[in-house]
């Protein structure tokens, strides 16, 4: 998969979290993910179609998403619940939109679907398209999260 497709998702993720949740996130080294196990406890996933077809998943460890949503709402969130799931959906939506804007500027036009959210310990993330799954781990002061990008070409 082209790094040109991956980088906008890294930039968008950092931008969305710093603007909406005032949280600095640091990307680690991207790696090819071979299994379906989620690295986090709550995952937002969104289909993207256009120049290539694929899915983007953003999976958060519990502590990291509690801190992120607490900052977004201006009140402390203490457990994974429907409010957290809704927030993860919206974060995924914003990351998708920001990344697609950047990709459109280099001539790669994509459309995004409405995101879905899965929550719970030890869940799986199954990307429907049959391409390599590139995972990018991120660290924050409150915990970690990972984005997964999978396109058919």
């Amino acid at each position: 998969m082209d790094a040109l497709i991956i980088n906008p998702f890294i930039v968008a993720t950092k931008n969305v979290l710093s603007t909406m949740a005032f949280i600095d996130s640091k990307p680690g080294k991207p790696f090819l993910k071979k299994d379906n196990a989620a690295r986090g406890d709550v995952t937002g996933i969104i289909g993207i179609t256009g120049d290539a077809n694929g899915t983007i998943a953003v999976t958060f460890e519990e502590l990291s998403i509690l801190k992120i949503v607490s900052n977004m709402f201006g009140e402390e969130m203490t457990e994974l619940n429907n409010e957290i799931a809704d927030a993860v959906g919206e974060l995924t939506n914003m990351i998708s939109g920001q990344a697609r804007k950047e990709l459109a500027e280099v001539g790669k036009v994509f459309e995004g679907a409405i995101p879905s959210v899965v929550m719970g310990k030890d869940h799986s993330i199954i990307h429907i398209t049959n391409g390599p799954k590139v995972a990018i781990p991120f660290g924050t002061e409150a915990g970690n999260f990972t984005i997964e990008v999978c396109f058919d070409r």
Binding site: M20, V69, M72, F73, G74, E83, D86, A87, G89, E90, N93, I114
Partner: peptide, 12 residues
Amino acid sequence: DDFATMRRIMKN
């Protein structure tokens, strides 16, 4: 907005 999160943030 269909996301309660965004309605909450905007109202805040």
